[in-house]
Design a protein around this nucleic acid. Structure first.
Lengths: 158, 158
DNA sequence: GTTGAAACCTCGAACTC
DNA sequence: GAGTTCGAGGTTTCAAC
């Protein structure tokens, strides 16, 4: 399924997103006050944003720095080919790996930068050699280990 | 303020966190059903997790890949000194910059890896030269631009 | 950890512009 | 199409157990 790259969002939709990013558990009534509408149209808009996939869901943000047993490793990946097909096949596989917290297509020295989260170095190695290195088209991998998460924020709305 | 590195979380607390990460807007009654308690003790536990800072907040997760006008740039940073004081001073400043989506203390070639999100290349350059480069102790910066966000997940609980 | 009751929120029906 | 008000029914919250 192909989605349009950008969506028409008016000022109110933007305000809704901003507010929900700031407080994902705000009540619809308060959200309505915040954006200056009554609850019914706000709820309609929120549902539309959810259904269009603009809002993917709601989560609690945990303090990663404090949670034990989560190791972040950044892995830069180079594919053997960079044609559209190769990228799509790789991305499909990446999306299925729960260890991959984020994946960005990059300019420059390598093709992708991932953040992989595992409970331990051992688990990371198993994932790296058993799954990541075997993904379609992967030619080269480089891992950089994070000692500590200082800050992990949610997507802002700028 | 120094916090203990790890916290004692029993099975129920873990289940609460897992459930809230999956659905940050779940009603307390449903959450109670999920963890097998009634609402009052669940709410007490949630409040305790919030107050201890384990739960930092709640947010809507947006589809970064679809949102127009958000450029992700990874910046690796080396400080001129690496003593505890220098790190703390740098981290204090980083936490105040809303453009910084994540910051990790790293092993290896550089000290920190940041993901900076701005609406445009121009805004990024203003941030880089105007704020980042002037932060305490910053000796060297290297930027890598993301072409596209393939996947951005929330923190898992492993 | 449980119960219960008041306060609050949700969301659809009926209506207006 | 996009907004408002109203209210029955469900949810949250807190004191008492």
């Amino acid at each position: 399924m192909q989605v349009e790259p950008t969506q028409d969002l008016d000022r109110i939709d933007r305000k809704i997103l901003q507010t929900l990013v700031k407080d994902g558990r705000i009540s619809w009534r308060e959200l309505a006050d915040e954006v200056g509408l009554s609850t019914t149209p706000v709820l309609r808009r929120v549902k539309a944003l959810e259904e269009s996939g603009c809002i993917r869901g709601y989560t609690a943000t945990l303090d990663e720095a404090r949670l034990a047993g989560t190791l972040s490793v950044f892995v830069s990946i180079t594919l053997d080919k960079q044609d559209a097909d190769a990228l799509v096949r790789f991305e499909e596989q990446i999306k299925l790996a729960p260890e991959v917290m984020s994946c960005f297509l990059m300019t420059g020295d390598f093709d992708y930068l991932l953040r992989v989260v595992t409970p331990s170095v051992e688990a990371f190695q198993v994932f790296l050699t058993g799954k990541l290195a075997r993904m379609p088209g992967v030619a080269h991998l480089k891992s950089s280990f994070a000692l500590k998460a200082i800050l992990v924020r949610q997507a802002p709305l700028v």
